[in-house]
Each structure stands twice: as C-alpha cells, then as structure tokens.
Simulated scan of single mutants.
Amino acid sequence: MTPSKRHPILRFAEDEASFSISTDDPTITFTTLADEYRLLGSWGFTEAHFTRANFQAALNSFLPPEEKKALIDQLREAYSFIDYKVPSLPTSSPPTTRSPTPPLKPSITFGTWADRS
C-alpha cells in the first residue's frame, strides 16, 4: 500500500463505526489474531482503535446478558478502565413491549479508492 492510500478500515475506526477484529477462517487462511493485529497496526491502527473494537465486539456478541457483562468486566480490568461507559445491557427476561419503529441505521457512503487520503 502506498503512503498516500489508506485502507478504508481506518476511516471506519476514526468514525467510531462498530466492528470487530477476527481471523475469519484460520483453518483455511492460517491467519492468527496476532497476525491481524500486526497488519492493522501496520496500516495505522492505534491502541485506542484496538481497545474500542474489542469492547464493541463484546457488546455486540451473542452471549447471554450475564456472560456478556462478565466479558465486559474482564475487558475493563484488562484495559484498566475504571469508568468505561457501556450502554445498559438487556436482562435475560424478554421485553414486555416493542418499539413501534425500528431504530435508525447509520448511512455509509463509499467513494472510490482514489478518494481516500
């Protein structure tokens, strides 16, 4: 990658889009999570980007609420966060009412690779 071109994932990270970092299919690609972290670091990811991605992955996981809270607590301890603001997690009991309309989804516009700077 030339110095003038940036990978689009940097824009997502800078715009605080929610995403996670994974190995995709390590049995096929022989890629480890450490490999992915090194690659993203070479593209300009900072410790803050990695930290936010890890919290977002935990928040958006399919874990039951109690296990999700335990995972987030482990991340808080690992990253030495005392007061990380985490949205309230649902309880294990189903909601009694549904919202009349779904929440708005973010709009993302893609430009060409040449537009990236």
Rank of each mutant, 00 (worst) to 15 (best):
S18G: 08
M1L: 13
Q74Y: 04
P65K: 02
T32L: 05
R11T: 13
L10Q: 03
F50C: 02
S4A: 13
H49Y: 06
W43V: 08
P100T: 12
T2Y: 09
T31Q: 12
A58C: 07
T109D: 05
K68H: 03
P26K: 08
F81I: 00
R98I: 13
P94G: 00
F55Y: 14
A48I: 11
K85S: 10
F81V: 01
L63S: 02
L104M: 08
Y79Q: 04
R11M: 11
G41R: 08
F12W: 12
Y37I: 07
E14F: 01
P106F: 04
S61R: 04
E77Q: 10
D15S: 11
G41P: 05
A58W: 03
L89W: 08
A114L: 11
D35S: 04
A34D: 12
S99M: 11
H49F: 08
M1Q: 08
H7W: 07
A48C: 03
D115K: 02
E77C: 00
R76Y: 00
P90A: 09
T2G: 10
M1A: 12
T31R: 06
A48E: 15
A34H: 10
P90G: 00
A48W: 04
L59R: 14
L89S: 08
D115A: 05
A34N: 14
P64F: 03
S22H: 05
S117R: 03
S80E: 07
T91D: 13
P3A: 06
P64G: 03
T112W: 10
P95G: 05
S18K: 12
S42F: 10
D83R: 02
L71C: 06
W43I: 11
P26C: 06
E66P: 03
R11N: 11
P26I: 14
H49K: 03
F45N: 07
T31P: 04
G111C: 01
D115S: 15
T97S: 09
L33T: 06
E77F: 02
Q56M: 15
G41F: 06
E67K: 15
T97R: 06
L10C: 07
R38M: 13
F50R: 01
F62W: 09
Y79V: 03
L71Y: 02
R116M: 10
N54K: 14
L89G: 08
S117D: 12
A58D: 03
S80R: 06
L89Y: 07
T91L: 12
F19M: 07
D83S: 06
D25I: 11
Q74W: 00
L104K: 14
S88N: 11
R52F: 06
T101R: 05
D25T: 10
R52K: 15
A57S: 15
D115Y: 00
F55T: 01
H7G: 02
Y79H: 07
R38S: 15
G44C: 04
A114D: 15
T97W: 06
T109Y: 09
S22P: 03
T27D: 09
Y79R: 00
T32Q: 04
E67S: 07
Q74K: 13
K105N: 06
F110V: 11
A57R: 05
Y37W: 06
K5C: 12
P102T: 11
A48T: 13
W113V: 09
